[in-house]
Design a protein around this nucleic acid. Structure first.
Length: 282
DNA sequence: GGCTTTGTTTTATA
DNA sequence: GTATAAAACAAAGC
């Protein structure tokens, strides 16, 4: 599931590869992925536009165009962007030999952007939940970036907060980019129970959460993201963060720190994983 | 065929 | 009026 590190991997890859390229065509088999505009309007707006820069805000990919507009892509659960040279034959996109053809999760192409250099940016998205639109400004109602904020500002965010800490970390308006997987992993390393009330956390707890938040997100970016599920990089290749996960989907397994069994609970409708021995409520 | 998966949005409640 | 919790929604695998 693309959270901040996975989106960052895609953004860095695009930045290296497609700045200066121009959109020459757009294809889809799932028009509803494009919000607001009809697909026909969307296509008309995009063709001929040159990519001038690439950015990220939370989990949103921002592709800045030469007419001051911005192509926004949110990959949601199973979406991931790929870059390569497909061939369109008999109404089907035929991938090049390699990860783009070998790995099933790279085969659910629902939007394909053709570039003027002969390559395509393709969205593979098994569940078709991704969101694509053209916007004019980036005035998101999102919290600060976890990798940009300093500890004092982070601490200030918690003033008057009293919800459950895991849900707070996942709240995009509170802080942007953390989803279900990283929230569980951050709290495990911090020895904080996911249902702990924010107003019971002292400065030491918040410092641990802050440090582990930065560590985990950076470590995952270094490992090219989490490919536990559908995420792949632009080349269709897996990242490595799933290999160092400690609790996510590990219910019943032994905690690496103490040997207790990892538990799974339902918190806010989300699977939540933690060690009942290392992460005790106050 | 109901349950699960996640991120976001909408609705309800305190 | 606001913060938080719960429910709804998207599609598909098992």
């Amino acid at each position: 599931m693309p959270e901040l590190p996975e989106v960052e991997i895609i953004v860095r890859g695009l930045r290296k590869e497609v700045i200066g390229k121009t959109f020459s065509d757009v294809w889809t088999d799932t028009k509803k992925l494009v919000k607001q505009d009809s697909f026909e309007d969307f296509k008309r707006k995009l063709i001929g536009r040159k990519i001038v820069s690439i950015g990220r805000r939370g989990k949103n990919i921002l592709i800045y165009l030469d007419n001051e507009e911005i192509l926004l892509i949110h990959q949601k659960i199973s979406g991931h962007l790929l870059l390569g040279k497909w061939k369109f034959e008999n109404n089907v996109w035929v991938p090049p030999v390699g990860p783009l053809s070998d790995d099933r999760v790279n085969g659910y192409l629902h939007i394909v952007f053709s570039l003027d250099d002969g390559r395509q940016i393709a969205l593979s998205d098994q569940r078709k939940f991704a969101k694509i639109e053209i916007i004019k400004d980036v005035n998101f109602d999102l919290g600060p970036e976890p990798l940009d904020i300093d500890f004092n500002s982070f601490k200030d965010l918690f003033k008057r907060k009293k919800g459950k800490i895991k849900q707070i970390l996942m709240d995009q308006n509170f802080i942007a980019g953390i989803g279900n997987i990283y929230a569980s992993e951050i709290l495990y390393l911090s020895n904080v129970h996911p249902e702990e009330s924010a107003n019971k956390l002292d400065e030491k707890d918040l410092k641990k959460i802050y440090d582990n938040m930065q560590f985990i997100l950076k470590e995952s970016i270094r490992l090219k993201g989490d490919s536990f599920s559908d995420f792949r990089d632009l080349n269709g290749e897996k990242g490595g963060f799933q290999n160092i996960m400690k609790v996510y989907q590990k219910n019943g397994k032994e905690c690496e720190k103490c040997g207790a069994k990892i538990l799974r609970i339902n918190l806010g409708g989300r699977g939540t994983f933690f060690c009942p021995n290392c992460q005790k409520k106050k």
